[in-house]
Amino acid sequence: MRRSGFNLGLWLLLSPLLLWLLLLILLPHVDLLLISLRERVAPREYAFSLGNYREFFQEPLYWRTFARTALLSILATALTLLIAFPVSYYVAKMLRGRIKNALFLLCLIPFWVSELVRTYGWMILLRESGLVSNLLQWSGLSETPVELLYNDGAITVGLVYSAMLFMVVPLITTLDSLDDSLIEAGYDLGGSHWHVMWEIVIPHAMPGMVSGCILVFMLTLGNYLTPTLLGGKDSLWFTEQIYTQFITRFNWEQGSAFGILLLMLSSLIVWLGLRLSRQSFAQVMS
């Protein structure tokens, strides 16, 4: 009797979470999968078909965009890690007290404004009549106005910038939890900066690095705003293709297939990343 009572309480407590998972995550995806596997044969008549997936592989524009999105996302994630690690190490290990908190806050400040405004900031800097272009002309490095927007570089810069916070926060948190005396012991026993970093700091920071990378990668892969604004019409970002299929072409079947493919891609890459860094998902997310 008591056991069933206990179970009932547990289920009641879990119900909001389960409902959320079911209604907002599981159902839409199942629906997405079902839609992606059908084909319209006549108005309001559908049949099972793999045609949408076949279309993806047969049309080079689609799978090239897909591969390009994946590669640029990986590149942006790696760059974010490379930039965020020294910054986080400096904030977490070299600074103390007031200035440490102040700098940490400073990292957060850009994220108080919306992503749209932040991206617009980059456009102001990089466009043909923008700040950087004017600076180049003024200093004599360039004769004519330079267009720095609408290329892969601009997209990458924007992606790294908009994802930085999600790398810095987990990194600072894990690095902060590393006991200073471990680092000192590393030096005391004869280690160089390189050894201490490689054998003591990085193994300790690994869970933070991996969870930061997963977050940044997923956000980047699914980002729509930044690639569209900074990359222009031809930015060839996969979320744009999905948007086009759903909204412009009104081809829900094709759009759903793209959505499922994107989901599979991100799961695959995250799984590979975890395997390569020998971390478990539970460990990284705790």
Binding site: D179, S181, A185, G186, Y187, D188, G190, I200
Partner: peptide, 28 residues
């Protein structure tokens, strides 16, 4: 510190948690 002929046993030991006993001792 890494060039001095002295070694230190820290107040809270500071053993490397990601290494085994042998790896800890072999670090130097």
């Amino acid at each position: 510190p890494n060039r001095r002929p002295v070694n230190m046993v820290f107040q809270h030991l500071a053993l490397f948690p990601n290494m085994s006993v042998a790896e800890n001792v072999g670090y130097g």
